[in-house]
Design a protein around this nucleic acid. Sequence first.
DNA 1: CTTGAAGCTATAGCTACTATAGATATTAGA
DNA 2: TCTAATATCTATAGTAGCTATAGCTTCAAG
Lengths: 144, 144
Amino acid sequence: MSITNYGIGKVSRHTGCKVETIRYYESIGLLDDPGRTAGGHRSYSAQHIAQLNFIRRGRELGFSLQEVSELLGLAGQDGKTCAQVRDVTAAHLADVRGKIRDLSQMAAALEDMVAQCDQNASPSCPIIESLSPTQEALDLPPKG
Amino acid sequence: MSITNYGIGKVSRHTGCKVETIRYYESIGLLDDPGRTAGGHRSYSAQHIAQLNFIRRGRELGFSLQEVSELLGLAGQDGKTCAQVRDVTAAHLADVRGKIRDLSQMAAALEDMVAQCDQNASPSCPIIESLSPTQEALDLPPKG
DNA sequence: CTTGAAGCTATAGCTACTATAGATATTAGA
DNA sequence: TCTAATATCTATAGTAGCTATAGCTTCAAG
């Protein structure tokens, strides 16, 4: 194990995390506090780089910082940990699938709108019309 | 055309927008200023309700408030407007498709991870391992 | 006329960063 | 060793799109 340390810029280059982001992760307690040089500059070890890469990969998979934090906490342990990790991951997967469903519905509706627009011969805009409320909505009784 | 006015709570119920959200839309200049009663309460017309429904539908389709604002601005006009509306919509559709692609990749990776976890017999957690950096990443030369 | 619901403003909080200003530290070259 | 360029430091504010809170005032029903 090396005792070699790295400045924040080098860590940034090695992990793909921006310097500000690294400081931010530290400020919210997600990344362990690095030591400091005599002058007050942060001084990271290889372990910090490993942590940051873990965080970055988690983020790339869409985990929230809260979830990443949980996974990081589970990472060092053993025993029932694997089942807990699986749960976090499965819950997140369900979430991602839900988002895909929502976005697919949006995409289908938007495709329809664009297609209608392309066939449009009238002076009015079919997209605007599909966003605009029907007359019905304008006729609400004030005491309704 | 009616001169009947509505309180913010009624407008909320008619549009599905929360009271706070309606005030927020006004504060950022997205929704026209409503008149006020003598006591200072907001007093909305049917036109405001139409605007809010337009905004809500736009949001449901994933348009940003900025895009909704553009569409609202284009909605009252004629001429080349339809082409501009189509452009905004097509750009947003491309964006939505990009998000679907990203999320699909995430989902595939997460499915893999969960599947590996389910077949797991070893004491270590395959999910944690796939998030953890390889040894290579820990062996960076300090001056790299 | 009273009372409870609804509305008001201003402010702060949420996620996950990103950007800025103005000061200090470090490092490479002369 | 000195200097100049670069890197880093802190603190603060900004981004989107709301949501929530506190402490008031107004409105509407009985």
